[in-house]
Amino acid sequence: MTRPNRPLRIARPSGMRERLVAVFMLGLALFNPPLLAVFGKGGTVGGLPVLFLYLFVAWIGLIVLLAAIIEGHGEEGTEKPDDLVPRDGGDG
């Protein structure tokens, strides 16, 4: 008897939309005070300005996350059940 050695997935993994919104939130946190203030005091590390280094590394990180989420969901998905469920936050 061979069985796939990974835990059974019971809950539906959260969808692309939720993950994208989460990355948006993360970006808001990274690019605004107070995190920005932590790195925005000036000074250098390894010859590069801390602020410059921080912003670009965070930015690259965000882009990698976005790419991973988008490409991880494959090409399908435009007309998935996802779309048929009305979920417009602004209703009413």
Binding site: M16, R17, L20, V21, V23, F24, G27, L28, F31, G40, L51, F52, L55, W59, L62, I63, L66, I70
Partner: peptide, 20 residues
């Protein structure tokens, strides 16, 4: 200094919501 950057960080954040 870095104050030229928000003009590009904003669209990056918005891009995360583009799919929606």
């Amino acid at each position: 200094g870095m104050h030229f950057l928000p003009i590009y960080l904003g669209p990056t954040l918005m891009a995360a919501l583009w799919w929606i």
